[in-house]
């Protein structure tokens, strides 16, 4: 599709460019909120408003105070630290258990396969507020409410459906004869798993992990119930910021996260290109 053939008719040309424009607009729709958030995070006022000074590009209208606030305020720092402590552990938990289970599910003879699948997917389909309230009562009773592990377990449960879905999807296309071949050549099941199966299903595992991580990192409903003061995460702090006193510090945090994620995603992409070059593959 890349490029227009030289023999394309006028109609085809018009459509080609119209289509590009439509796609451009949709991409713009995707990032429009971010485009708004970034300048507002430099607002000199404490509101989410484009002030006349900002529109005139008057330096008076801009300030770094919301960034300073984020880095100096102990509440925000604690929230950042809590998010960093909770999300990766929850992700590891859901990815490791989820991948194992997905492999189990992809075997030929699994009894009650559909029922099991439905149960494993259920955290995604139960409305979040119901899960939150249910976990709150149940975790209170077993002493997990308001503890670090309570939040981690809750978030891991929420992330599992994503891991299951992505990993099963990659396993559908997985050629089983590869593991048999490995076993034939004397590899034990663990070696087979890590050396043969894992590298092949890795893309699925990674995207599952990504979803699971985001689920935890951006989750506010469940943590509000299951967590207590000691587990206040970034979204929780943001939620308070929106409820109690609107502060563009929220936008500053969002901007920082966007910049960090652009850097991360670009690094991953560059690394991928490098490894492709090293392996002598030309990018498709």
């Amino acid at each position: 599709m890349s490029g227009l053939p030289p023999y394309a008719s006028t109609g085809q040309r018009t459509w080609y460019y119209t289509f590009r424009v439509i796609c451009g607009l949709i991409f713009f729709f995707l990032i429009a909120p971010i485009v708004v958030v970034i300048p507002l995070s430099f607002n000199a006022q404490d509101f989410f408003t484009f002030t006349p000074e900002m529109l005139r590009l008057d330096p008076e209208g801009y300030s770094l105070k919301h960034y300073r606030n984020f880095f100096s305020d102990s509440g925000w720092q604690a929230a950042l630290w809590n998010s960093v402590r909770i999300a990766p552990v929850a992700t590891i938990l859901s990815v490791s258990l989820g991948t194992l289970a997905a492999i189990g599910l992809s075997q030929d003879h699994v009894p009650a396969r559909r029922a099991i699948m439905a149960i494993l997917i259920s955290p995604m389909i139960v409305p979040l507020i119901i899960s939150a309230a249910g976990m709150y009562f149940f975790f209170s009773r077993i002493g997990l409410q308001g503890s670090y592990w309570g939040v981690v377990l809750a978030h891991a449960a929420l992330g599992i459906p994503f891991v299951i879905i992505t990993v099963t999807a990659t396993l559908v296309g997985f050629d089983r004869s590869l593991t048999r071949a490995a076993a034939n050549m004397g590899a034990d099941p663990v070696t087979t798993f890590f050396r043969v199966q894992m590298p092949l299903i890795l893309p699925g595992v990674i995207s599952g992990a990504l979803f699971a991580f985001i689920t935890s990192f951006d989750e506010v409903v469940v943590v509000l119930f299951v967590g207590s003061a000691g587990q206040k995460t970034l979204p929780w702090q943001m939620f308070l910021g929106l409820r109690e006193q609107i502060s563009p510090t929220i936008l500053a945090v969002a901007t920082i996260l966007v910049v960090v994620s652009i850097a991360l995603l670009t690094t991953v992409e560059l690394l991928r290109r490098r490894s492709e070059r090293l392996r002598g593959m030309s990018p498709s």
């Binding site: 709150y136 009562f137 209170s140 009773r141 409410q145 207590s228 003061a229």
Partner: peptide, 16 residues
């Protein structure tokens, strides 16, 4: 910072 959910949370704490 849970005053907004205080009654709900205290009820559940009491149940537990």
């Amino acid at each position: 910072e849970s005053s907004a959910e205080a009654v709900a949370k205290l009820r559940a704490m009491d149940e537990a």
